[in-house]
Amino acid sequence: MDLTMRPYRSVLYIPGSKERALDKARTLAVDAIIFDLEDAVSPGEKETARETLAQALRQGGYGKRTKIVRINGLETHWGRDDAAAANDMDCDAVLLPKVESPEQLDALAKLTDKPIWAMMETPRGILNAAAIGAHEQLWGMVMGTNDLAKELNSRFRPDRLAMQSALGTCLLAAKATGCVIVDGVYNAFKDDDGLKAECDQGRDMGFDGKTLIHPAQVAVTNAAFAPTEAEVELARRQIEAFEEAEKQGQGVAVVDGKIVENLHVATAQTLLAKAEAIAAMAE
């Protein structure tokens, strides 16, 4: 499955230093894994974590899940060695934290030929989202809402009012350039209702999925970002109705009392492709 066509409903952070967590991740129904060498690893474990992760990836067993390695920033003591090591690992992409300019991506691109993902988690990064999103080696953006909230000195609200401008800016940048973009984490991992509400908000905005901090969040998130049976059935009927209308020389169709035009058919086809990609994950 092409990397850009894979589903990204659930993107779980896993510490690169924890062998037990790395092993358990092989059994989880997530679409992607961020193997973390940055925040989840203490300074004293950085060097060993790099080898622990490399060994786990060599061992394999992660199936069709997208494997993303989050390295330390290139300005840190570990960043460049992380990037060089990740380039040799059996992973699909390298995630750079606290990206604030395309020049930072240029620096990483000199160290890896793998697709690059960018953490969007600072005010300067958000303001430069369009330039970052346009980088030729960038395949995805990850919203770092915890770090961003710290930088903004904003308070948590269930409606995420303080995050809306940043979320929307990055979403526009990603959609303009065809990048994958996943929403930030929900910290209360035992609060399924709150998680579902935030997933629904992100899905309705247009995010491809959500980053997770705990396996208990996977089922709710996968369900929220997957097309429902009703949506799949409607998409099929829209396509069929439009094709029939075209045979009759008409440019529009009507389904359930609503007009169906070319743009609706394109949306329906995208939805069906996503449903097929999700089904392929389970094969």
Rank of each mutant, 00 (worst) to 15 (best):
Lys24Asn: 06
Ala25Asn: 07
Ala25Arg: 14
Ala25Gly: 10
Ala25Trp: 12
Thr27Pro: 04
Leu28Ser: 06
Ala29Ser: 13
Ala29Glu: 13
Ala29Arg: 15
Asp31Pro: 09
Asp31Glu: 13
Ala32Thr: 10
Ala32Trp: 11
Ile33Tyr: 10
Ile33Arg: 01
Ile33Val: 12
Ile33Ser: 04
Phe35Met: 12
Phe35Cys: 08
Phe35Gln: 04
Asp36Glu: 05
Leu37Arg: 01
Glu38Cys: 01
Asp39Pro: 10
Asp39Lys: 08
Ala40Met: 12
Val41Glu: 07
Val41Cys: 09
Pro43Cys: 09
Pro43Gly: 03
Pro43Val: 01
Pro43Asn: 10
Gly44Ile: 14
Gly44Arg: 11
Gly44Gln: 10
Gly44Tyr: 05
Glu45Val: 04
Glu45Ser: 14
Glu47Val: 13
Glu47Pro: 07
Thr48Gly: 03
Glu51Lys: 14
Thr52Gly: 07
Leu53Thr: 03
Leu53Gly: 04
Leu53Asp: 01
Ala54Trp: 00
Gln55Val: 10
Gln55His: 13
Gln55Trp: 02
Ala56Pro: 13
Ala56Glu: 09
Leu57Asp: 05
Arg58Met: 15
Arg58Gln: 14
Gln59Phe: 09
Gly60Trp: 13
Gly60Leu: 05
Gly61Phe: 09
Gly61Lys: 05
Tyr62Pro: 09
Tyr62His: 04
Tyr62Asp: 07
Gly63His: 09
Gly63Leu: 11
Arg65Lys: 15
Arg65Trp: 05
Arg65Gln: 11
Thr66Ala: 14
Thr66Leu: 01
Thr66Ile: 06
Lys67Asp: 05
Lys67Cys: 11
Arg70His: 06
Arg70Thr: 04
Ile71Thr: 08
Asn72Ile: 06
Asn72Pro: 09
Asn72Asp: 08
Gly73Trp: 07
Gly73Pro: 08
Gly73His: 13
Leu74Asn: 12
Leu74Ser: 03
Leu74Ala: 11
Leu74Thr: 15
Leu74Gly: 05
Glu75Ala: 15
Thr76Phe: 02
Thr76Ser: 14
Thr76Val: 07
Thr76Arg: 01
His77Arg: 13
His77Leu: 12
His77Pro: 04
Trp78Cys: 01
Trp78Gly: 01
Arg80Lys: 15
Arg80Phe: 15
Asp81Cys: 08
Asp82Pro: 03
Ala83Glu: 08
Ala83Gly: 07
Ala84Arg: 15
Ala84Thr: 14
Ala84Lys: 15
Ala86Glu: 03
Ala86Arg: 04
Asn87Glu: 15
Asn87Met: 02
Asp88Arg: 13
Asp88Glu: 14
Met89Tyr: 11
Asp90Arg: 05
Asp92Gly: 05
Ala93Thr: 05
Val94Arg: 10
Val94Asp: 11
Leu95Ala: 08
Leu95Glu: 07
Leu96Gly: 00
Pro97Asn: 02
Pro97Lys: 01
Pro97Val: 02
Lys98Ile: 00
Lys98Pro: 00
Lys98Trp: 02
Val99Arg: 03
Val99Phe: 07
Val99Gly: 07
Ser101Tyr: 09
Pro102Val: 01
Pro102Glu: 12
Glu103Pro: 04
Glu103Cys: 01
Glu103Trp: 07
Gln104Gly: 11
Ala107Trp: 10
Ala107Phe: 02
Leu108Arg: 06
Leu108Val: 08
Leu108His: 06
